[in-house]
Design a protein around this nucleic acid. Structure first.
Lengths: 326, 326
DNA sequence: CTGAAAGCGCTTACAG
DNA sequence: CTGAAAGCGCTTACAG
């Protein structure tokens, strides 16, 4: 694929294509549009802009589909990126971090499509994000952190959210009668998997489910817990699909005069730093997020340097961390 | 500067230089070392790898000289980067974020020196960071966030830490007798400037200084406050060189039975989110960090596209936010 | 493993 | 503003 072909497709001379793409001289609006249209139809990139083109080592970009603000406030990103960064650093590969949130979306997309990186680690695909859809239709190697939402198809790595939730609920089933769930946002695959794990365990034990909706925040967990106590005052255990929600739920339980774990046992999910410092310390499901980041980086890196097909999706096990809230 | 010159310098053929730099064929160890040595002596980059070389728009990288962990936990970075990102997004320029902390230092440096970006926004130059020194000796346009430590010379933008501190202390001088300072780490230019501003104001009013050392954390502020109360039980005002230290100091004051602002008035620095929610709400010095980020991005961008000399250093004013702790 | 030479892809003075 | 053609910088069969 050369400029000559693009010129033919656009019906202009190679010189004109060169001028448009390098911005070295004025070209009329009409002609410029013809050239850009031919370029995007053919997917043409200039020599030196082609991914993997004479770039040793390659560049792998981490793209976060979240406003920068949120990205900085969620420990998942930090841990995932650290893991990936550390793996890649050992191979001399830098990991530039790019946001694909609304104000910078266009420039990030153009940068990636213009050959700015040889592979993309896609973090946090909430909903069918337009960038995820664009990249999925490209030859650029890509790996998602966490199973993408339905309708978006790309290789991913994930933790076993379903199995982790199931193990947590099975622990509660050993000593408790009525076990409620505080669920996460239903548009997040991770939240849905944790719900499924809860339902799995209850179904196998022949118990009826009892679910309230949360939003992964402490406030949401607190409200959900109040609702559950109204609905089923006799409940004696709660599984919260995230630690922040568990922390909110503990506040609601305390305000309602229930002792933890005497009256109500509670388990969270994530093992955030704060989970070890709640009163009582929170039993929770730990995700190996750094290992997940390193694994994603490894699979993507192998694909980039080999130029081959992506490896299979991989799922890492979670670990139940038993503290004093159960 | 072409491959022919590099070949002459290295005493090999242009073909061999090409093979080394593209990694397209095996070259003997001796020869390869000769080539690399000539390349670095001449500062040679291949066509397409040269910064600003036919890259429309250019790439500007934000480089943070901190472990990723700390970078994610300091609101200054977030606000600075958001400001820069928003400015650049309007011009179609992406802002990849790179860490220059220890595990990834080498790969980031190589990436930048190898033409990975056309300009660098250097955030948080604590001490004479090796990357800052390397980049300062390069033709790559660069702009530091905050005045660099002594011994590192590069264009920067900063807020008027000295003037902000001075204004805060002058407010206290209107109604208070004995005003103490809880200082920040003395290796940080910002902390030193705030100390200077405090000393300026006291000297002009003919009052003796009273200083305890802190480390910008709440714990450090608390310890410093206790020390100050021991040393000078009659103090009636404190200026803390950061809000987190002010928050720690407020805890110490409360534990010592002092009312705020009745017995002791207190002012912080930064206007972090929490400052509006302390009891009583904290008077503090607000830094225009987003504007600072946008300004740094603007100055750097102009330099990159013009190819000229860097613009003058710029200092933005701070703003005293008066709440109920004074 | 290396060089001389042909060639490829892109850029750019030149002409209109 | 655009094309034909010369030329530049790099790469790569080919020969040894």
């Amino acid at each position: 694929m050369t400029m000559v072909e693009v010129a033919a497709e656009a019906g202009v001379s190679p010189a004109t294509v060169s001028r448009v793409l390098s911005g070295s001289a004025h070209v009329s609006d009409t002609t410029r549009r013809q050239v850009y249209s031919a370029v995007s139809r053919l997917g043409y990139l200039r020599r030196g802009e082609r991914p993997g083109d004479s770039r040793h080592p390659p560049i792998i970009a981490a793209v976060v589909c979240e406003p920068t603000t949120r990205m900085f406030n969620d420990p998942f990103f930090l841990r995932f990126i650290s893991g990936a960064e550390t793996y890649l650093a050992g191979r001399g590969v830098p990991l530039p971090l790019l946001s694909a949130a609304s104000p910078v979306f266009a420039s990030t997309e153009k940068h990636l499509l213009g050959g700015g990186s040889d592979g993309v680690l896609l973090v946090s695909v909430h909903g069918p994000h337009p960038l995820a859809l664009t990249l999925a239709g490209t030859r650029l190697p890509i790996r998602a952190a966490g199973r993408p939402v339905e309708g978006v198809h790309m290789p991913f790595v994930d933790v076993d959210n379903r199995g982790g939730a199931r193990a947590a609920v099975e622990l509660l089933l050993k000593t408790r009668k009525k076990i409620a769930l505080i669920a996460g946002p239903s548009d997040l695959p991770a939240a849905r998997d944790r719900l499924t794990g809860y339902l799995d365990a209850l179904a196998e034990a022949g118990r009826p489910p009892l679910v309230a909706a949360g939003d992964f925040t402490p406030r949401g967990g607190k409200n959900a817990m109040r609702l559950l106590l109204d609905q089923a005052p006799n409940l004696d255990a709660v599984f919260a699909a995230s630690d922040p929600m568990a922390i909110g739920a503990m506040m609601a339980l305390r305000q309602a005069g229930r002792r933890i774990p005497g009256d109500v046992a509670i388990i969270g999910f994530d093992d955030v730093t704060a989970a070890a410092f709640t009163d009582p310390p929170l039993t929770t499901v730990r995700q190996p997020v750094e290992r997940l980041g390193a694994l994603a980086a490894e699979l993507l890196f192998e694909q980039v340097v080999s130029g081959g097909r992506p490896a299979e999706d991989q799922i890492l096990d979670t670990e139940l961390v038993i503290r004093s809230s159960t």
